[in-house]
């Protein structure tokens, strides 16, 4: 596993009652948790609602809750449980027991968390690119536009588009230096 250099938000910070550690926690984990929930509930609004609901509860009981794992696994585990609850609730209501595959403990693994965390890290590195660079890189990679199409849309030369994408890759390569060998490992595991 990759260890983090910065000290993440921990329980003591949360229990201080200050809203900022809580906000930091939200900012750090909200996006990957929604994406994680999306794997189970398949609907963006539901996924968001589940994660927000969880954060409301977390805030309400921030003085009193006890966990015996890392905060990170606790967050993912809680969201996983909320998703299961939500799905079984829907199942009960629709009485379509057989139509929706039952989730089991096996669906939840450390591996899955690592993959999401890594993707989140890559996303964050894209998000912190200079604006024009970010915009063009996203258009190419996330929206699947061709370089000619991007050039036409933004009224710039194809050469400029290529230069910006190269620049993006160069910056990301530097920022993610410690994690790139890890990408290869996770990819092998997924295959």
């Amino acid at each position: 596993m990759v260890t983090r250099r910065k000290k993440p938000v921990d329980l003591d910070d949360l229990k201080s009652g200050d809203i900022y550690p809580y906000e930091m926690l939200f900012r750090e984990y909200y996006r990957p948790l929604v994406v994680f929930a999306l794997k189970y509930v398949k609907d963006q609004d539901t996924a968001k609602e589940i994660v927000q609901e969880f954060f409301v509860k977390l805030y309400e009981k921030r003085f009193s809750f006890v966990i015996d794992t890392s905060l990170k696994s606790y967050l993912y585990r809680s969201i996983y449980n909320s998703c299961i609850n939500y799905i079984s609730h829907i199942e009960m209501r629709n009485r379509h027991f057989k139509k929706i595959a039952l989730l089991t403990e096996n669906d939840f693994s450390e591996n899955q968390i690592s993959t999401i965390e890594l993707q989140n890290r890559i996303y964050t590195s894209i998000d912190s690119l200079p604006l024009q660079c970010k915009r063009i890189f996203k258009m190419n990679r996330l929206e699947g536009l061709k370089n000619e199409e991007i050039a036409e849309k933004l009224k710039i030369s194809k050469r400029t588009v290529e230069t910006q994408i190269s620049k993006a890759l160069k910056i990301m390569r530097k920022k993610l230096a410690d994690y790139l060998p890890f990408i290869i490992v996770t990819n092998l595991l997924i295959i």
């Binding site: 939200f26 900012r27 909200y30 996006r31 990957p32 929604v34 994406v35 999306l38 963006q44 968001k48 890594l118 993707q119 989140n120 890559i122 996303y123 894209i126 890189f137 996203k138 990679r141 996330l142 929206e143 699947g144 890759l169 990301m172 390569r173 993610l176 790139l180 060998p181 990408i183 290869i184 990819n187």
Partner: peptide, 21 residues
């Protein structure tokens, strides 16, 4: 090879982009 992985992974990140923290 490393950059290719990064290149391919980036393609999967649309769901992350759809979340407005």
């Amino acid at each position: 090879e490393k950059l290719r992985m990064l290149w391919n992974e980036a393609e999967q990140l649309q769901p992350f982009d759809a979340v407005d923290t």
